[in-house]
């Protein structure tokens, strides 16, 4: 049982990713080898352009690997079709974006419900689970507010609720605190850490905020598309 808990949910071997920018090849990732175990609370740190977002996008299946092997939740992403990647994102991965990326015309509870809607949950179950998780992140009063009517911190908490509601194995967060003030960012980090501990969800997030780095269970340093250092 213990061995199973420690199994890798993310396994990356020799990952390369190049972009073409105005005719120039940009090497976003230069041979990444990485293994993330279930229940880890890992931060990827590095300056802008170091490849953090590209790495998260590839792990999340919204970008394609160039070379190398990427396994997420036991599935090899190489050669997966778009529809299969969608299913993986829907059922195994939760996303938290720097810019919140909520659906602007839906209310907080509808944004969270949307994922359950895609999973085919019935209306009553959807509403109950969405409201419950929004209460867990302290948004019981904002259920019917649209994103534009909420603060950045509140929007990001809706994004966390949306990422969690489908009980994913992994939550990927791309600089989740970057647009928040320090206290709001800290509170969000507390929330994520608690969810990590209580529910055993694996968190992998990018950051260049030193406060976030200090509170990470594991820190991976990325520079010019390479892992330069890591600590537990």
């Amino acid at each position: 049982m213990k061995k199973r808990e420690q199994s890798s949910v993310i396994e990356i071997k020799g990952l390369y990713k190049d972009y073409n920018s105005d005719g120039l090849a940009v090497h976003a990732l230069n041979g990444i080898d990485l293994s993330i175990k279930k229940g880890e609370f890992t931060a990827i740190a590095g300056p802008s352009g170091s490849g953090k977002t590209t790495l998260l996008n590839i792990i999340g299946g919204i970008d394609r690997p160039g070379r190398g092997e990427v396994k997420v939740a036991g599935k090899n992403l190489n050669g997966m079709k778009r529809g299969e990647l969608s299913d993986l994102r829907l059922n195994s991965i939760g996303f938290i974006f720097q810019a919140y990326n909520l659906i602007p015309v839906l209310t907080a509870v509808e944004n969270v419900e949307y994922v359950l809607l895609l999973q085919g949950a019935d209306k009553k179950e959807r509403r109950e689970r969405a409201e419950s998780i929004l209460r867990d992140v302290g948004l019981e009063r904002e259920l019917k507010r649209k994103p534009a009517e909420m603060s950045g911190g509140q929007q990001q908490r809706v994004a966390v609720a949306r990422a969690m509601v489908s009980n994913p194995e992994i939550i990927l967060a791309d600089e989740p605190t970057a647009n928040l003030d320090q206290s709001t960012g800290s509170a969000l980090l507390d929330l994520m850490r608690n969810l990590n501990k209580e529910r055993g969800i694996t968190f992998l997030f990018s950051t260049h905020d030193s406060m976030v780095m200090k509170r990470a269970g594991r820190l991976i340093n990325l520079r010019d598309g390479r892992i330069v250092a890591g600590k537990k």
């Binding site: 529809g83 969608s86 299913d87 996303f95 909520l102 659906i103 489908s166």
Partner: peptide
Amino acid sequence: IRELGIMLSIGTSPVR
């Protein structure tokens, strides 16, 4: 476009 991108990112399939 952005909204559709979000929908795709969080698991909506292209067919859908």
